[in-house]
Each structure stands twice: as structure tokens, then as C-alpha cells.
Design a protein around this nucleic acid. Structure first.
Lengths: 194, 194
DNA sequence: TGGTACACGTACCACGTGGTACATGGAGGA
DNA sequence: TCCTCCATGTACCACGTGGTACGTGTACCA
């Protein structure tokens, strides 16, 4: 009697890593099991065996991408200078594929597609909550802390969308720098008298 | 001899509007011609007839969404107060479906899928260019104008992603308000001494 | 009245899909 | 040595896919 090997195993981990790698290049939501299997050197039969179904594979990939996203973010930024360092990291070309996949899954999740349950909560609150806590620790008013955390996340994600579409590292980094300046030097500049 | 009626016609317009309406509810990227046809009360044969192919339909939908996106944006904001009014408009629940579809197509386009050619350029530059021009007219330094336009777009899109995921109109609006305050009142607040 | 062009339905096609049945090989333990 | 379990390959299935062939009703025009 053959049973689904949905639990972890070395073979499964190997396939998952290869599948994520392939998803980074090609996306995931509109690829077939056979396309993925062929690309990573196995048969679609093996993907079903190790992940139970196509949806099971998608869930596993989504979770892995989520895990890497958290890893990229690491701990929340503590200061404006820290935020700037974090942006420079995110803007690194080596992370583009991962970020593109993140937005693909995000859009997929917005449509309520199976396999993405919980992704959106984690993608937003999982970031805002710790940052807000840090800002409150830093003495910022509670309501402002939440708004600032949301704004920081929005700036980051919005500029990443821009960067992925245009590839314009210079321009997007300049915009991020402007944002940090607005935070850091809230007086004495002349950008906003329009 | 039957020819493809890919040019416009009343019947085609009717089907396109219905297809876009359905895409707003259900997404578009991973739906089949038959699903769409059944949902809008026609046959998949008619979609092929009027749009040439599935990709032709997708192109038509993408263009229509692009057009509506531009229409929602209207003219670029001229002032901070104007930007705030624009956000309130974008945050209106009646636009959620359209925005979700926009991000779905955006993600699709990031993967270079057929039917999305030119979408990204229009989605980013089509917004930044006019805003930058307006900011320069308003007397802002050219480099700062570009950065500010990018930043404004990023804040808008980033907060929309947040809003679509969380449905938290209050929180995202508060974050947008904070952004306008950073622009409008660049002195005298105490948010950024962390 | 006859022709013609459009809009549409039905029935079909080859193909790719997710998933299953079944056999097998190899490693490790009894 | 035999048994069991994991990993895998091959072959298959029913079904849904995009796309096509062909017929037809209707409206308009000569």
C-alpha cells in the first residue's frame, strides 16, 4: 500500500528546493506539474507522491517563499539608518526573482486561491506588528507607531514593485532616500510647498 | 469564409465589458475561456470569434483595465490636499476589485507573460512622468521631483496592497495621512527621533 | 427576391492536465 | 535470506483545454 509522503524527507526537501528555484525563474501559479517536474529533473508522479497534489506542492512553495521573505527581512529595522541599509539589501538584484514570486503569490492570495490561506496576514501583520512594537519601545505614540509601520512597509513594497517593473535601482533608491530624509530631517527642506 | 472579428463591434464591446466585470470578481489569469463564457452567458466559441484567441481576450481585458486605471487616476495630483483626496477615492470599497485585478495583471506582467507587453511601462512611467512634470512646474528641483513622484506612487500602491490584504481602510488611511503630514509639515513633529 | 455579411450554436478535434495503478529496485532490519 | 518500506518509473485514465468546421438565422442592401 502506497501512502502519500507528505511529511518531510530528504528527497522531498530536495524537490521542494528545486521547485522553489524553478518558481523563482518561471513563476508558479500557472505552471503544470509536468512543466515543473521536467524542469527540475523528475516526473510529475514524484511531485504528487511527495506533496500529495498540485495544491500541496503550491502550499509548500508558498510557505517556503514566506519563510525566505521573513529571512530577508530578518529583524525589523530599529532606526532610519537601519531601514536604509535594509532597502539596499532588498534592492540587490539577487533578490529580484524572490520578490517577483512574492508578489505573484500575493496577487494569487488576493483572489482567494487555494493554497494561500494565511499568506496575506503573515505578509502584512507579520511585518507591521514587530515594527510597531519597536517604534513604541522607541517612545513613539501608539497610533503614530502603527501608521509609521504601515507607511514604511508600503514604501518598501511600492518601491519594490517599481524596481521590479523598471529595474531602475538608482531611481527607486533615490526615492527611498527621500523617504528616510522626510523621517530623519523633518525640517529645513523645501520639497513640499506645492 | 468566416473571418475573425477582432475589430470593434457592439457585440464585442458587450462581451468585453462582461468579461472585465467577471475578471473583477474572479481574476483573469487562470480562468479558462469556457469558465468566462459560461459566467457571462455566451459560448467560448464567441470569445474566440470576437477576440481571435484566449490571448486576444486577455490583451483586450488588460488594455481595458489599464484604461480604467488611468481613468481612476485622472489627472495627476497638484497638491498635498489633492493627493489626500485622491487616496480617499482609491480607498473606496467600490474600487477594490479593479485594484486587485490591476495587481494580478501587474504580477503576471512581471513574469513576462504574453498579452501584457507594455503594461508595466504604462503602469509606472505613465504615472511618474506627468507627476514629475507637475512637480517641476511647481518649482521643485528636477531630481527631487522624480524621487518624490516615485515615492508618492510607491506609497499609494504599497498602501493599496495593504488595504486589499487587510481591508483596513482606517489604518491605511491613517498611514497615508502621516505621509502627507511628512510632506506638508516638515517641522515640529516628533516621529523620527528613534 | 436574392445575396451577403455578421453573430452565433453545436459538435468535434488533438492535446495537456491532475491523478492513479502497478511494478520494481534498493536499503536496512529480523 | 526474506521482509518491509521508501523512492521511483511507466503506463494509463477521465476530463478540461484552446481552437476549428460547419451550419444557420437574421438583417440589410441591390
Amino acid at each position: 500500500m502506497v501512502r502519500f509522503a507528505v511529511a518531510s524527507s530528504q528527497a522531498r526537501d530536495r524537490l521542494l528546493n528545486a521547485a522553489v528555484q524553478h518558481a523563482l525563474d518561471q513563476g508558479i501559479v500557472d505552471l503544470s506539474l509536468r512543466e515543473i517536474a521536467a524542469a527540475i529533473g523528475t516526473s510529475h508522479r514524484m511531485l504528487i507522491y511527495h506533496f500529495g497534489s498540485r495544491e500541496g506542492l503550491l502550499v509548500a512553495v508558498v510557505r517556503e517563499v514566506e519563510r525566505r521573505e521573513r529571512e530577508s527581512l530578518g529583524t525589523a529595522p530599529l532606526s532610519v539608518a537601519d531601514a536604509r541599509r535594509r532597502w539596499d539589501h532588498l534592492a540587490d538584484p539577487s533578490l529580484r526573482a524572490q520578490e517577483r514570486l512574492f508578489f505573484e503569490i500575493y496577487a494569487h492570495a488576493l483572489l482567494g486561491r487555494p493554497g494561500t490561506e494565511g499568506f496575506l496576514d503573515e505578509a502584512v501583520d507579520g511585518w507591521i506588528t514587530p515594527v510597531r512594537a519597536l517604534l513604541i519601545d522607541a517612545g513613539i505614540d501608539e497610533e503614530d507607531a502603527e501608521a509609521l509601520a504601515r507607511l514604511g512597509l508600503a514604501v518598501t513594497r511600492g518601491l519594490l514593485l517599481d524596481l521590479l517593473a523598471t529595474g531602475d535601482t538608482t531611481g527607486t533608491t533615490r526615492a527611498f532616500t527621500l523617504f528616510t530624509q522626510l523621517l530623519d530631517l523633518p525640517s529645513g527642506h523645501d520639497l513640499s510647498q506645492e
